[in-house]
Amino acid sequence: MDRVIFGDNQFFGINHSSDEKARAQAIKFKTNEAVKAVLDIVVEEGINTFMCTTHDRMIGIGEMIRRDKRYLDFKIYPCMPYAHKYANAVTELGIMGTIKHYLPGNIISTLTKGGLAFVKKDFISMMELMVDAEMKMFREISTPVIFIQNVITDLLLGLGMTDFLVGFHNYIRERYNAEPGYITMNLPLLLDTLEKAGIENPIICASINKAGFRMSGGKANYEKVIAQKRCRLIAMQIFAAGTIPYKEAIEYVCEMDGIESVLFGASSRVNIKNSIETIKTYNRVREERAAIE
């Protein structure tokens, strides 16, 4: 995985420190063209991995990426599902209604024939169909790592339904020839659980920041687990939603041994450039120190 990965929260009105900022971003990125313009900057600045949720908007943005020659080396790490879409649907349509609504067209007939009995027979297959439905928007785009969103990873983790985490792992490797990844807010527990299920050295994306924000069970526990290097780790929320000064924030994750990649999102060329430069600076500091040692 690349050392620096670009994230998508700013594009879809997600901001964990301010609803007002989130709304301002939603207005700024109203059009797919506005999102693409920022991605163009990202590509120009040499970042080639974009980690993004399977938001409906990605259908149009994916189309623009496919048509643009500058994006030949560009990789997307899809994160599925965009949970609010389904959560709101469950409130409105119920669970069965949601399944019917979102499954790909060819399965509707199977559902009508087999109905409930079909669904009950094999939940893992249902999950696989949902993965396929979400992956459609990325056709012809390189997707070497495919993630489950934290709300689903952590839900399955709490429910003890490890079968689905393993099922996802197997399916992504077999069907997409890609690496499965897990986003989580509970890194230590997830890693223990995956290892017990026989998944070694998984790709995990977790909240890691100097403030200890969304590091469940505490920062000290996370630091201990990270140092053990039992997984390929992407650090997200490194700025704790913009509340840690960015140099301090980047220094914390770049200095830490055991983090493979750093994920960040930004909306302007200045911020993108500054973040990349700062990450590079602290990478160099660490490499030089490692060389001396």
Binding site: D154, G158, M185, N186, G212, M215, S216, G217
Partner: peptide, 8 residues
């Protein structure tokens, strides 16, 4: 926010 042992 206070830290919790499990986040969902």
């Amino acid at each position: 926010a206070g830290n919790v042992n499990f986040y969902l």
